[in-house]
Write a protein that binds this DNA or RNA. Structure first.
Lengths: 145, 145
DNA sequence: CTCATTACTTATCATTTGATAACAAAATAA
DNA sequence: TTATTTTGTTATCAAATGATAAGTAATGAG
């Protein structure tokens, strides 16, 4: 099999994934949130509690800039910070009640849009999709990342 | 089958795809190019010739901003513009010779990194991967476009 | 021909994001 | 104890990106 052809197929596929992600997530938050701040909230939502250092690494941004964005999110009452009792340098970040509410609404909206994408899929189609996702996770994506 | 579970699997999958894309494409261009300009060049590379309006729509940016970035790319001799002979309002954008060279090097670098991702895949694995990509394209991504 | 529309440009301003220096507090190593 | 490292903050500055007003030239509709 031609690995180069597979590469081109993969590139086209990822381009489409990015496009679909854009469509699924556009105009999600009514709140006064920048795209970067939304990504940070998304990460906190699925990984909380997280430290600023972890956010910094996962979002590929410097710690000072992470600190600034977290301060803005805290000013908007969307997150809360706690100090580690053992190591008081460390901070743990969680969504506040309002933050949770906002992100749950966002995820619900995205899910609704996703369900429209697969509205015509049969049970067999769904099994095929699930299997395809698992194959790619296992045989391409889980190698390094 | 539980569609909601499939949604969560899909979300995790796209997050990983974005991470892998980031890893594959980081530090690609030595040239003095911003991320947005790189995306524009990538789009021109695979779709040329394209009009500023098409770039504008595909990259979700306004025509004035598109025009500004294209001017910068032209100043760096990475693209060329041609007028449509039939409709002289229209412009067609192409990569210049230097632009082609740059993008081919970039793609070669990305391909090399991709091949490392699948270096341990057997022939059967490659067939599975190709099939999985095709399934997802067909049953999820091609619905709305 | 006149008017509206389309495709694009230029100019300008605001916002977002990135980069870096300097600092403080806590923990750890020597 | 002293020195070093880790974790995070504040403050600036620069660059990238977004938004919008105004204008030009070509086209097409009436």
């Amino acid at each position: 099999m031609n690995k180069s052809a597979l590469f081109h197929q993969f590139v086209a596929f990822t381009a489409t994934i990015h496009q679909v992600t854009h469509d699924l997530t556009q105009n999600i938050t009514a709140a006064n949130i920048t795209p970067l701040q939304y990504k940070i909230l998304e990460y906190i939502k699925v990984s909380q509690p997280v430290t600023p250092t972890e956010i910094s690494e996962c979002q590929h941004m410097s710690l000072p800039n992470t600190s600034r964005e977290l301060r803005k999110l805290q000013e908007q009452q969307l997150i809360q910070k706690f100090s580690d009792t053992a190591d008081r340098r460390k901070q743990y970040v969680r969504l506040s009640k309002e933050g949770e509410k906002m992100m749950e609404e966002a995820f619900a909206c995205i899910e609704e849009r996703f369900l429209q994408l697969i509205q015509h899929a049969t049970q067999d189609d769904l099994k095929d999709i699930q299997h395809a996702l698992a194959i790619l996770e296992e045989k391409v994506l889980r190698q390094n990342g």
